[in-house]
Design a protein around this nucleic acid. Structure first.
Ligand code: FES
Ligand code: FES
Lengths: 158, 158
DNA sequence: AGTAATCTTGACTAGAAAGTACAGATTAGG
DNA sequence: CCTAATCTGTACTTTCTAGTCAAGATTACT
């Protein structure tokens, strides 16, 4: 349960595109330079974001990448799923059954229940955060995060 | 951001030891058989749990593994850290700076703030769950998870 | 058309995680 | 003391992910 390099770099690229504005365009070499990641790797990450529909690319001279939608419409939960998959997917228990091919308690497994709870907690934060929220400075972001409400309207973080 | 095989198998081993009770002992071959994981791999996982202080091992004939403490004293957040590390550690930004060796916004980074928020959300669930909670059936576990309170005393999940 | 800047694609390489193997150490019981 | 059962430690192999590379396609400008 670790953040992956793809998730970190991908989100940072997206934030940088957000700063560039809806019409601002950034090329791969520029992004590579700005984030300190190799051009080849930057290209791979931006491609993933394009396939996910979060950015659009313009080829040829004067080309580059731009946000595909307004920053407020880009939900971070979807971005994270694109970049690193979900924490717990239904297929997980199938693929981690060991030799028997399935958890020996699969019809009634408390562990599975815990994974789901963790997934819900993560989604709770990420599905309420948009790219626009990330375009603030760290202090503002910290304050914002504290206001994320629970399903019952109460605050999740103190 | 995915669950690792170590986390899945390790937690399942621990649950099985919990079912065996405080004095019940399970050998590597028994555990391997029960969970459908190879003996060599089971050994590796149980060794990690032993180093983490969650189980204790008895060598020699009539040996095996036992919980090191009562199930109610084994906090799942600690188990998960032992098996798979933390989602976001302070070292993460240092090791993912790319070529420059550090996030170019490191003095003021909204992304880092988001990671922290996700980590807090995960810890919120895992630090309130003990092995004892996992020794229930799935339905009971589901009900229990819904009662996890937020820091302000409100329910985290609906 | 020609050229330079730019994204696109698929294949390749390096590195990390998962899983395996085996010789060694420890213990119970005869 | 001897044997069988059991954990321990290290090293090895396999598998998956992260990162690199090079040739190709597209566009703006002249
Ligand atoms: S069904 Fe996934 S751990 Fe039991
Ligand atoms: S400091 Fe880690 S992403 Fe900026």
């Amino acid at each position: 349960m670790k953040l992956s390099a793809n998730e970190e770099y991908g989100l940072r690229c997206l934030v940088r595109l957000g700063y560039a504005g809806e019409n601002g365009s950034i090329t791969i070499p520029e992004m590579s330079q700005a984030e300190g990641v190799s051009a080849a790797n930057t290209a791979k990450i931006l491609r993933a974001l394009r396939k996910g529909g979060f950015v659009k690319a313009a080829r040829g001279k004067e080309g580059g990448y731009t946000l595909a939608r307004p920053a407020g419409d880009i939900v971070i939960a979807e971005v994270m799923e694109c970049l690193g998959g979900r924490l717990f997917e239904s297929s997980f228990c199938d693929s981690h059954g060991g030799r028997t091919g399935i958890c020996t308690r699969s019809v009634d497994c408390s562990v599975r229940s815990l994974w789901r709870a963790v997934q819900v907690a993560v989604d709770h934060v990420l599905s309420k955060t948009t790219l626009r929220d990330l375009l603030q400075n760290e202090e503002e972001m910290n304050s914002w995060v504290r206001t994320i409400p629970g399903p019952n309207g109460m605050r999740l973080l103190q």
